[in-house]
Write a protein that binds this DNA or RNA. Structure first.
Lengths: 127, 127
DNA sequence: TTCGTTGCAAACATTTTGCAGTTTC
DNA sequence: GAAACTGCAAAATGTTTGCAACGAA
């Protein structure tokens, strides 16, 4: 089994994700970190995002315009996607809702692991 | 403004989608119709899916493994995605649920147009 | 010294598009 | 005949991967 080493760039990617509510793409992360890490490569960003996701440290919360969007906030919540500007906004549950969703009967499913609730519309910025 | 013509292949694509619960990909549609329409091209399938979607006749219900999945059942319902075999199964609401979801407060949203609720897990076939 | 990590570029997979020919109305 | 539709192949897009060099333990 492979052991994971410490990696400065992985750390930077994770901390950037922790510090933002942008739900960024790999590209955005790459461009943002490029200032500090001039030799960063896009492949590294992709590799580390997958790795962090596998470790459960981050989550892929949506695919917007064909781009995977990531979030370091892993507690259960939902998202709103602006169909004009592609902004992704956190949506937090009033606590009854998830139970309602969780109890839904699904014919053909053996086991339900998780669910994803995404709202689409126009955000405040796009009026 | 452009007027839409009748097209035999568009019709076939739509009817195929109406006839199946597979929530197929463009590729699946292409391969399935290839028997009857030997000269069908994948580009035509993609173009018509986009067009049918814009007309509101079909919906893109999920992106599974990077593939868009389509559904001709446009009445509000949800989906279950098997993370092993990528099967997509319809999930119908007990009628109270959508209101609960619909009334969720979304900070930063100007207008909510629709939402998508997708369950992930293992399907019956995958045990 | 071992093996995880990275840059780079090539490869990949899905989807989109330009163009010339075909079909629909 | 005008405009929509199509096949084809090329391009575009986002992501993955092979490899040789680099870095951490």
């Amino acid at each position: 089994m492979r052991t994971q080493n410490y990696s400065k760039k992985r750390q930077a990617i994770y901390e950037l994700l922790l510090s933002t509510k942008e739900h960024p793409t790999a590209e955005w992360i790459y461009n943002t970190l490029k200032d500090e890490y001039a030799d960063l490569s896009l492949g590294t960003v992709y590799r580390n995002l997958k790795l962090l996701e596998k470790n459960g440290m981050i989550k892929s919360v949506a695919v917007v315009n064909g781009c995977e969007r990531y979030d370091a906030l892993t507690s259960p919540h939902s998202h709103f996607v602006c169909t004009k500007c592609s902004r992704v906004i956190d949506v937090f549950y009033r606590d009854e809702v998830p139970d309602f969703i969780r109890n839904m009967h699904i014919d053909g499913a053996d086991r339900v692991d998780y669910f994803s609730l995404i709202y689409y519309g126009t955000c405040n910025n796009c009026e």
